[in-house]
């Protein structure tokens, strides 16, 4: 599922303060990315390359996503991997199976790490 998140579903995953109610996992493996109440739901438009593109003969395809979990300190993550920076953006991946990008971080803003709501599992 690589689309934007239906808004009624958002209520199920965030509490009154817009923090994540549940734990956040990789979609592909049991790796824990974030513990409850560690991130804040924000609206932000950002283009992320597709996770399932395995063919390197075509240009990078992706989607613009709108719903992200915002984390203000990178050490808040339980498990996560950071890609090398491309145009000042580091892409976040699962630390275990390396599925990604599941989010992004701009090296110009040390206090913002974004996980795409549509690219992780809640529960």
């Amino acid at each position: 599922m690589d689309s934007n998140f239906p808004s009624e579903k958002l209520e199920e995953i965030c509490d009154d303060e817009c923090q994540n109610k549940t734990r956040i996992f990789c979609q592909r493996c049991p790796s824990l990315v974030l513990s409850p109440k560690q991130a804040k739901l924000v609206k932000k438009e950002f283009f992320l390359p597709n996770m399932f593109q395995k063919n390197d003969h075509t240009p990078i395809e992706g989607v613009t996503l709108n719903d992200f979990w915002l984390v203000t300190n990178m050490m808040t993550f339980d498990n996560v991997g950071f890609s090398k920076a491309v145009d000042n953006i580091m892409y976040l991946i699962c630390a275990d199976c390396e599925m990604g990008p599941i989010g992004w971080h701009s090296i110009d803003d040390k206090k913002a790490y974004y996980i795409a709501v549509a690219r992780v599992k809640h529960g």
């Binding site: 592909r28 824990l32 390359p49 597709n50 996770m51 399932f52 593109q53 395995k54 063919n55 390197d56 990078i60 990178m74 050490m75 993550f77 339980d78 498990n79 996560v80 991997g81 950071f82 890609s83 090398k84 920076a85 491309v86 580091m90 892409y91 991946i93 699962c94 630390a95 275990d96 199976c97 390396e98 599925m99 990604g100 990008p101």
Partner: peptide, 25 residues
């Protein structure tokens, strides 16, 4: 650090740019 490629997912995009570091708990 980054898992032996066989069972790693390795999307084209991520494997092209490479991984810098990981946080583990």
């Amino acid at each position: 650090l980054f898992r032996f490629s066989e069972d790693a997912f390795n999307s084209t995009f991520i494997s092209t740019i490479g991984i810098d570091f990981k946080i583990r708990t």
